[in-house]
Amino acid sequence: MSETTETAERTETATDQPLETTSGETEEQVREEWREYVFDGRTKLAAEDLDVYYGDDYALKKVSIEIPEESVTALIGPSGCGKSTFLRCLNRMNDRIRSAEVDGSVRIDGQEIYQESVNLVELRKRVGMVFQSPNPFPKSIRENIAYGPEKHGDLQTGLLARLLDRSDEDEREQLVERCLRDAALWDEVQDRLDDNALGLSGGQQQRLCIARCLSVDPEVILMDEPASALDPIATSKIEDLIEELAEDYTVVIVTHNMQQAARISDQTAVFLTGGELVEYGDTDQVFEDPRSERVEDYITGKFG
């Protein structure tokens, strides 16, 4: 689903001063090249001419990208380049920031999410999110997992439900076990589901957050530097988990750690300062043979 028809429009928005690239091409030409990047599989998410401002500050400039389903897409770039902002656009978490203004289009399975009639509850059930620092609720492990489905009315476990004999206790237990198994946490916590989640280690808490995210049966999982607050062992567990999840879910992950991006992702998108998406393609290609000089400098560490 490459969109070559719109290339002419887009080049207007590219950087005013063309920069030299590795192959002697201008950045515009580079952009055109990766615009034609074709991946295997169906497009799950597509952003088109996405602009985000915080007040007068540009956070994202004309970002257009398509993300294939059931794969891992890494967003890398220096601090403040807009990759987290972009991630938060995909489930409209930016709506929660009052000063943020979003302009452009984001489609999931071809459906526009920036329009009046979008059901935010349904959107966020389909597009789950895992945050930078683990943020389990100060409740038991079981309650953390069951929280979403219970609030959505998919699980009836309240007093009234028990009195009316409509309680979904068994379904809840199955859901908790399935989510914890999928998040590779079941073996560690199965004996203490009633303990407070804040008593878990940082890595366990983060996997619990992933399990909680799975509980509402999402299609896309957005991860905002999910391992940056964890030690190397916990990080490698999270990375293994991400690779497993990519078999069933579309994972989009923001990371500062380029080795991590190279290890786990199928596609890599590089954002650079100013909120621009500078390069997007297969991870191997982006890391080994970047088309843009700025991206090469960034990846090799010459430029932050």
Partner: peptide, 27 residues
Amino acid sequence: VPDEYRDASAALGVSKWQTIRSVVIPA
């Protein structure tokens, strides 16, 4: 009450009032 709780709840698609009732007030 940390904003992380509110974010986590919103990211699950839970409405604001339910978040306040089940997460913010208990905390």
